[in-house]
Design a protein around this nucleic acid. Structure first.
Ligand SMILES: [Zn+2]
Ligand SMILES: [Zn+2]
Ligand SMILES: [Zn+2]
Ligand SMILES: [Zn+2]
Lengths: 141, 141
DNA sequence: AACCATTTTGTTATATTATAACGTAACTGA
DNA sequence: TCAGTTACGTTATAATATAACAAAATGGTT
């Protein structure tokens, strides 16, 4: 969170209270959350003024554009970034048993180099590996 | 299509007329299509008996389970596989200008090896690189 | 053929995810 | 304080996907 604050100050961006709320919910979760889960959490914490989906989606859009969170495409869900402000492509290992998501800290995958060699100008990469984590395999075995 | 037919015969699977229709639409498209685009195309071809979403989603599920098509997670869309029946993980380059999708024929990406080393049992991988293809860069430049 | 079990298709309704459009409030710099 | 801009709030609706159950087709068995 303090990282996020610093990052926004450096970039002259407004980490408003709404955006901070959404980021805090994702940071506290340690798991991917759907937009409507986040919405429900916001409304649970403050039931007096019920807010609507666009509020959440706009905050998520801001946080994604600054690399503070990621979208897990294969889950329609969002998760806080483990190293905010990094440039390298995010890569995830997603356990379909315990639902835990690990964000790998690797440097850019070779595929991006290959894309470059093909003359393809990369904007954004989605790398999401689904399976069973080591922990869950032990429990099952 | 004949590949698909052979593959299903070998595996003792029923490539029914509905499934064939959906596969043919995707094969003819050469581009990703949304489930509702496919639905519209089915209903355009045969306006007499209007069909509903579950029909399409079930055909898509079958075709995906047999590796005849892929889902592009970042687009909520489906595309026919360029080498049906292959085992390796699919990887896509997606141009956000011309919307063309290239499926790379590489062997498994190193990340899968790494996942394995971490004791993670991989089920499925999603690799989708978005950007501008070489063609579109020329036109723009 | 007649039967049963299984799979596939069809139908209706509804859930889930996301955005358009427009008005209001807050912030920023002059 | 004023204008310009950005962010927030609200309503409605679009786009994507599935649950649940009924009907039909298929495949093997008698
Ligand atoms: Zn990250
Ligand atoms: Zn697990
Ligand atoms: Zn493929
Ligand atoms: Zn292109």
């Amino acid at each position: 969170m303090s990282e996020a604050r610093q990052l926004c100050e450096t970039r002259k961006l407004r980490l408003t209270s709404r955006r901070r709320q959404v980021l805090e919910i994702l940071l506290a979760s340690h798991q991917p959350m759907g937009a409507y889960d986040i919405l429900a959490e916001l409304n649970r914490v403050n039931p007096s003024a019920i807010i609507a989906p666009p509020i959440v989606y706009r905050a998520l859009e801001f946080l994604m554009s600054e690399g503070l969170i990621h979208r897990i495409e294969s889950r329609n869900a969002f998760i806080s970034c483990v190293h905010p402000g990094h440039q390298c492509a995010a890569q995830f290992l997603i356990c379909r048993d315990c639902e835990q998501v690990a964000e790998l800290e690797d440097s850019d995958p070779p595929l991006l180099v290959e894309a470059d060699n093909l003359g393809f100008a990369v904007d954004h990469s989605v790398v999401e590996i689904t399976g069973i984590c080591a922990q869950c395999q032990k429990h099952a075995g």
